[in-house]
Write a protein that binds this DNA or RNA. Structure first.
Length: 305
DNA sequence: GCCAACGTTGGC
DNA sequence: GCCAACGTTGGC
């Protein structure tokens, strides 16, 4: 069976080590096929290693003014070493990776089509914050309760930082339907949004910090960072081997395809106090299979400028 | 630009 | 192996 995925790319310019790492849907559509280099997060990398040729993937614009699903694509080449990690001048250079034992991998994705209606993250969040079917905007009521449930369970809304995610079939079908039918362009809701709650149990009142459910993650984008001083050892993985893939990217930019400009709610909870120490463990992994995370890089293009 | 979320480092 | 400090991701 085939899996469905979601890959992020940054549509806005961002200079890293002198090079622009942006990769928007416009560029993707024009180049058609692109290697997803730059992913430096173990969990994201491991997911890429699972990708098979022909599997479908959502192309998501991230770290931009209007983040959301912009296009549909397909895996056109399974995981292979991300050689950009060996290039010292590359934004995502990782001194710990080398040709003999590549630490990072990438896949090639081929552009298939644009979403007729760009699906903003704000809408997906809004839907995922609806507690009952009656809260769902009529304009998108066609996704049904099943669609709502599927969106609520997406990593995109439950753990935003992973740059390469798995998408279940129902969620995939729901996104495809929404991209096809749209309907929210005129919505204006905003008022509701329960705030960031959603799937993870967040403890509100008593709070504890530890969210037990979450744990790990991977970040996405931004790359490497390994340039810092050599600190400790990462748990990476490296070795593992065997197959795995990896990828990533993000994008965004202004696009509003369709409009959307609306925000279906925003709200973030504020609560600061860091809960940081609470536990959390990593997900990826190191080694093999694990998942873990590393950081994922952005994607492609390194253009300079 | 702010800052919540969370992965990573690294002392112990 | 635990966990506090630190650095990043990335939405807003």
């Amino acid at each position: 069976m085939s899996n469905f995925w979601l890959l992020k790319a940054e549509p806005d310019s961002r200079i890293v080590k002198g090079k622009d790492v942006k990769f928007s849907v416009d560029e993707f559509e024009s180049v058609k096929t692109s290697a997803w280099e730059g992913v430096r997060n173990y969990e994201a990398r491991n997911l890429m290693k699972e990708m098979k040729v022909g599997e479908k993937a959502l192309f998501y614009h991230s770290n931009c003014k209007n983040p959301g699903v912009a296009a549909f694509s397909e895996v056109s080449k399974e995981a292979y070493p991300d050689y950009t990690a060996w290039d010292e001048t590359h934004p995502y250079y990782d001194p710990k990776s080398n040709k003999d034992s590549p630490k990072w991998f990438m896949v090639d994705l081929t552009f298939k089509s644009r979403a007729d209606h760009f699906i903003p993250l704000s809408l997906l969040r809004f839907i995922s914050n609806c507690s009952s079917a009656s809260d769902i905007p009529e304009k998108v009521a066609y996704i049904g309760e099943e669609g709502v449930r599927a969106i609520k369970s997406m990593d995109l809304v439950t753990r935003g930082r992973l740059s390469v995610q798995r998408v279940d079939e129902t969620a995939w079908n729901t996104i495809v339907l929404m991209a096809e039918k749209g309907g929210w362009d005129a919505l204006e809701l905003d008022k509701k949004m329960p705030s960031t709650a959603v799937a993870t149990p967040k403890a509100k009142s008593g709070e504890r910090s530890t969210p037990k459910t979450r744990a790990a993650p991977a970040r996405t984008k931004r790359a490497t960072a390994n340039t810092k001083s050599p600190k400790k050892k990462p748990v990476e993985d490296d070795e593992e081997d065997e197959s795995d893939v990896y990828q990533e990217s993000e994008e965004s930019s202004e696009d509003n395809y369709e409009d959307d400009g609306s925000d279906y709610g925003k709200s973030r909870s504020k609560r600061r106090t860091s809960l940081r120490g609470t536990k959390r463990k990593a997900r990826g992994g190191d080694d093999d299979d694990g998942d873990y995370t590393g950081r994922a890089p952005r994607r492609k293009s390194v253009r300079k400028n």
